[in-house]
Write a protein that binds this DNA or RNA. Sequence first.
DNA 1: TCTGTTTTGTTTGTGCGAACAACATACGCT
DNA 2: AGCGTATGTTGTTCGCACAAACAAAACAGA
Lengths: 398, 398
Amino acid sequence: MKAVNPRAAHLGLAMRCVAEQAGAISRAGISAATGLNRSTASSLIDELLAGGLVREVGATTRSQRAGRPGTALGLRDDGPAGLGIDVNVDYTAVCVVDLTGAVRYKHVVAEDQRGQGTREVLDRIARLARGAQNAAEADGLVLCGSAVAVPGIVDRRSASVTLAPNLGWHDLDVAEVLPADVHGERAILDNEANFAALSEEELIRAGASYLYVSGQIGVGAGIVLDGRLYRGAHGWSGEIGHLTIDRDGPECPCGRRGCLERYAGHEAILRAANIMSGAGTTLGVSPTADLIAERARSGDSCTLAALAKAGQTLGFALAGCLNLLDVGTIVLGGIYRDLAPWIGPEVQREVRAQFVGARWARPEVRASTYGAEAPALGAARSVVRDIINDPSRWLARL
Amino acid sequence: MKAVNPRAAHLGLAMRCVAEQAGAISRAGISAATGLNRSTASSLIDELLAGGLVREVGATTRSQRAGRPGTALGLRDDGPAGLGIDVNVDYTAVCVVDLTGAVRYKHVVAEDQRGQGTREVLDRIARLARGAQNAAEADGLVLCGSAVAVPGIVDRRSASVTLAPNLGWHDLDVAEVLPADVHGERAILDNEANFAALSEEELIRAGASYLYVSGQIGVGAGIVLDGRLYRGAHGWSGEIGHLTIDRDGPECPCGRRGCLERYAGHEAILRAANIMSGAGTTLGVSPTADLIAERARSGDSCTLAALAKAGQTLGFALAGCLNLLDVGTIVLGGIYRDLAPWIGPEVQREVRAQFVGARWARPEVRASTYGAEAPALGAARSVVRDIINDPSRWLARL
DNA sequence: TCTGTTTTGTTTGTGCGAACAACATACGCT
DNA sequence: AGCGTATGTTGTTCGCACAAACAAAACAGA
């Protein structure tokens, strides 16, 4: 229940136009696309230019047509930037993304957090964040906010971690250690799978509905409907790892039986492929995913069979999700991305067999654009996306 | 990509305020709730008063406080009204709802459509609609639009039925026969379960997320997220009837095995309870649901066992949906509403056992507010809700 | 009963932003 | 070179929201 500010709304409108067709739209083009008057569009662009969000990129848009060519507009790559941090069990990743969505800085530290105290982990995060901030400033960027991806349940209001079992965290205020709240804004917190889902820029821009399936130690999903993330009534949406595949299946630590994780989770695949990594301790996610992929490439029949079975079971579960949600696309992320050459076709086949609407439309199954860096990238992008959607907030703080 | 019209947006804002707290809010209250200036709120209300959407209801809002009492505002019950039509296999229902959401006219014709030609069915719909229109006008109302609920797949753009297998319809333009498009607006079309879900006014107003499970011949669901209906990429969301419960289960007409419908669908319950209605032909939905309820009330152990099993299976399937969507509420509609005393507890128990977040939050399982009239009512309400959300469109046509 | 206080609703002026029209500019085409 | 077309800018008008002032209607207290 809030009154609208037309100027702010129109600034966002113009900004989104520039973002969507960067380098290929002029002031007149924005006028045509939005229905605003040409003079109004000019005024809005002036404000965005002065605020350092937009710049005139080319002298001409598209030639070969009669009439005066317009001056093409694009997002500035030296304006505000977003800091994304992904705290995971066996690695921590930071990245900086500019307004155009390009990655300007990236740093990954592979180190298992489980043996360490909370204080040490937080210190490392703070150090990494400061390093990213320094690098960004040296690159002419200004950090305008930060976002942290956590493998667990978060309370977005207080920006604190409610429970992250694999990190041993509960009721922890992560935002407090970050440098980017210098600007007065606290860090945004969210679940890893949710931020990973938000890394698929192209689908979001298209306003698509999709399910981003993230295979890690567990199996989670980020749900994007009509281009917007759906978090659920309590923020626990996408908990597909414990969908029941077979009520008489193997026991799961969660107390139930036959959960999807027991068939298509990371450890389940390792076990089925007879790759038991050192007495039950899981190594870093990507290394072992690489190991599985390597064995599959070399044609190891046991591994291939394990992947086929995992893909089939995953596809079966996802078909159920499709029947409920009718999303157009399924994105395979996390370890599934690297295993997509073997798992993808199985998923696709199973989905098409079980999806009620398969006769009229075929949901697309694709590998995610980014790998392990997806959560950090999605987190950083969601920061700059906030600025693109509502530039007035950024302009207000000069 | 459309420029905003602040006046229209604020008119909608004021209208929603009045709708939400009808009879208990003054101009000053709207100003406080929206942040708009008191004079602006007055101006908006003047426009709504002149347009016949709002009226001054009481002289005073709440006494016992110092200061001049405000004039309470409420929605007019003699303004524009919505026409809702529910075309089902064994009955057709029409109803008229005024701005306040009250049902002003209701008429149900129980007649099996299956033996009849498309033309005859359409003629009956047109006749019912005209009857409703006449009754509404005699009651001082003005129909401002109509909505049709259909058991099948619709194309909302063209407002035509793509496929309704149980009616024998395909690619049919239903809107053309309705009288309410006199006003230039074509009828809105949607799936039965979707409109039924929209009949839960209270939850929508609260902006809640819920799953409306509609038990009919099949089992469907309407998905409402944050107070808005989610229809899916193709408009096929909520097809939970063919979620697989047991891959080795009984065959289903859809070609798969062990679908939910085979366990918790209407016919499945009838069969399990040993109530086979006349050699396989299903009667009207509510009659047989009443029959089941009657037997259950009389303590028939076979029926009670059948209901318990159906509830358990339904709950199992819904728990999976909850893990994916994390909605706060599950609403049991269709035949499940009348059977809720026996099915509800089973569903609730199963959901709490299988829902991952059950330790921290318990999703509510409730029976739907309305029974067989829910789709028609939801359809009619969605018409008036459109006016409440954007009164400027109505005001523009004087 | 009278007065001060508080809240409501209306009136009046002011300023901002958007629409509109007119004009200047730049380019392609003939 | 001249014409047509599309772009960008400038100045004016208009709609809309806001602030301030004022009137009205209660209540509280002397």
